[in-house]
Amino acid sequence: MMSTAVLSSDCDPAPVANRREIRDLSHEAGDGKKTLTNGTPNSIGPWVEELVAIRDLRDETAFVRVFEHFGPRVKAFLMKAGMDSALAEECAQEALVTVWNKSHLYDASRASPSTWIFTIARNKKIDVLRKQKRPEPEDLVWGPQAEPEQEDIIGLQQESEHLGRALRDLPSKQRDLIEKAYFGELSHSEIAEQTGLPLGTIKSRIRLALERLRHQMK
């Protein structure tokens, strides 16, 4: 049985903060057909609609879909990071509870759903395996009067998918090295400066989204 400690700040997601509703999401995304199915061509990005429905509508059906997709992947990730099956199961459950409880921190202009859920799983890993909390950068939040631009959201989600394809297309030796780093099999001095991944575009896109956010915060 899980303890209430699962909701300690130690497993908070990275502070990508946006609590504003994404309006007319599906209309901006493509041919105007409304869809809540992940990965369809006119979707804004896989799982974005589900996370937004969880965040803004507390939609439990969307949560069940997210749970069924991400729960087994988070469990696999945590097992690769060194947990046994029982511990990984418990931590994956806790991570998904965090997805529900911290969904107001999800900002689709700065992270894809996979990225955001990765940060939750990663913090859970540090919390449990290292028994440490992880100092996080100061939170940047959208104020009551503003929200991210649609083009920033769509652009970021597209760049995230592009990055996923680039990782898949890397030579297997290079890809293994990156995966090892994220599973915790490399020390920081073994991590190479060059990943072989095209990170420039996604960085500049996020930088632009941050500038807009800073402007709103003035």
Partner: peptide, 10 residues
């Protein structure tokens, strides 16, 4: 972090 997301997806 986005690389981490892509690793999780895989």
């Amino acid at each position: 972090d986005a690389v981490g997301g892509a690793v999780l997806d895989r």
